[in-house]
Amino acid sequence: MFVKIKGLNFRYKNAQEETINDFHLRINKGEIVSILGQSGSGKSTVLRLLAGLEIPSSGVIIIDNLVIVDDNNFVLPEKRGVGMVFQDYALFPHMTVEENIMFGLKKIDRKAKKIRVEEVLALVNLKEFSKRYPYELSGGQQQRVALARALAPQPFLLLLDEPFSNLDKDLQLKIREELKGILKATGITAIFVTHDQEDAKALADRIVILEDGKILREGKPQEILE
């Protein structure tokens, strides 16, 4: 198993009940898992826990045989090798597309950085846009830059939070196909969150249905969504 999550519990400070209750998940390398659930069910919270943006009250997370979280360890978000595409993209407005993507490439020299930027931009089909600022891009283009930025450092695990929610319906369908192509081409392990069954069906190898912070069902798309 590439990713192992066991007994994850979490509660926001001002919340009455557990926001995430005994969450568990196992993911194979290269698998795409979708977390499906209604608004407020805790989908984003699960991703935030995996990224290290929230600290669980208990639980274990192991990625690639490295303990990320357990009773004695908590690896900081910047040390996890977990990439994330945010619901609102969070592209840095004061940086160009190129600079945004380079941001996550720390330890390599400038030339290697440039090459990597070219690579991921080619992957998302935005080669000519490297000098633009985020506000000079359409919603769909921004979304792809966010994806490229998250992919550039070659994370072990990629998290996508409602990647289509800011796009209109036509674009959603188009990008959905593209995204599937890109993810499969890189062979990355990914979790993506959505409230749309169609998204999940089209993209996921496996689906987890979340309700009120608890796992309701889990399985292959055909089994779950008959």
Partner: peptide, 12 residues
């Protein structure tokens, strides 16, 4: 969210 994005991209 910008802060968090930066953290997940490896900056402390």
């Amino acid at each position: 969210s910008f802060f968090e994005a930066s953290r997940t991209l490896g900056m402390n």
